[in-house]
């Protein structure tokens, strides 16, 4: 009501502030991406000679072709894709099961488990590197993609579980009870009724875990050394040598690294924005 009572001048001010703030945010969020691309397409000889310009006087794709052909980056990408994809899949599977149980069942020790999971989120990761290394070495999991998957899964499952639990909490219990009365087992009701409704949550969780694993540097740096198992964030550091930094190739590699994450989010964005439960219950 109050909105309609506002004068035209007031509405223009409101509108300007609203979109002005959005524009500031977008600029802040997207400018680094633009700069990444701009440096990636700037020939090395112009990088330091032209000074700071919004666009170079000459453009080149050489940095991209060099990254793809002359370096180990294709291998790093594949490693990152394997590690991130596996972590996302396994974490989401575990988180969905755990989140469903937290959301639907009452059992002894549930509160303790939840508190323990919260506690795991309270430590800075740096503190844990030495003990993790100590645990993984005898198991032969250092310097391997599997080791990274195990570590990333362990660290992502608690948060992903809370995320999934909140999605299950949003789906009325009545739905699976109705399905059970209609003739499903509890598992059948979960798969046929609850699962399709949780797709947005599953997509969000997959996306969250995937990006976290895709950009993780600390553990990848500490646990992996042979090029066969290096992931792309560690690979980026190879452009930094003792005497120089190859910014052009580094930015090109960084830009290429964005592509899989972008494709992944493009695929799941349909589910992220869907409000499937609308109309399930009175509304």
């Amino acid at each position: 009501m109050a909105y309609y009572a506002k004068s035209k001048g007031q509405r223009v001010v409101d509108w300007s502030v609203h979109y002005g703030l959005l524009a500031c945010y977008l600029f802040f969020a997207l400018f680094p991406l633009f700069w990444l691309f701009k440096v990636a397409v700037t020939p090395t000889k112009l990088l330091y000679s032209e000074g700071i310009r919004m666009w170079p006087s000459e453009m080149t794709w050489t940095n991209f072709t060099q990254v793809m052909t002359d370096t180990d980056f294709p291998q790093f990408f594949i490693n990152s894709a394997i590690v991130s994809g596996s972590t996302a899949f396994i974490s989401t599977l575990i988180a969905a099961a755990a989140g469903y149980s937290f959301s639907r069942f009452h059992y002894r020790g549930k509160a303790v488990i939840i508190v323990l999971m919260l506690i795991t989120q309270m430590f800075p990761l740096v503190m844990l590197i030495a003990p993790i290394f100590r645990i993984l070495t005898p198991l032969g999991l250092t310097d391997s993609l599997l080791g990274l998957v195990v570590v990333y899964t362990a660290f992502n499952v608690p948060f992903a579980t809370f995320l999934m639990q909140s999605f299950f909490d949003g789906i009325p219990k009545d739905l699976e009870e109705a399905a059970m009365i209609d003739g499903n087992t509890r598992f059948g009701a979960l798969v046929k009724i609850i699962f399709p409704l949780t797709l947005p949550g599953i997509a969000a969780t997959l996306g969250f875990v995937f990006t976290a694993a895709w950009s993780e540097l600390l553990f990848a740096l500490m646990l992996v050394s042979s090029p066969d198992a290096v992931t792309f964030p560690v690979g980026l550091l190879t452009f930094v040598s003792k005497f120089s930094v190859d910014f052009g190739q580094m930015m090109a590699a960084g830009f290429l690294a964005l592509i899989p994450a972008a494709i992944f989010f493009f695929l799941i964005q349909r589910y992220l924005v869907q409000g499937l439960t609308a109309g399930a219950v009175k509304g």
Partner: peptide, 17 residues
């Protein structure tokens, strides 16, 4: 529940959305 051969109408209707 599935083996009891009963039907139930819920307060929330519980229709599959």
């Amino acid at each position: 529940p599935r083996d009891r051969d009963i039907a139930m109408v819920f307060q929330s209707y519980a229709l599959y959305p």
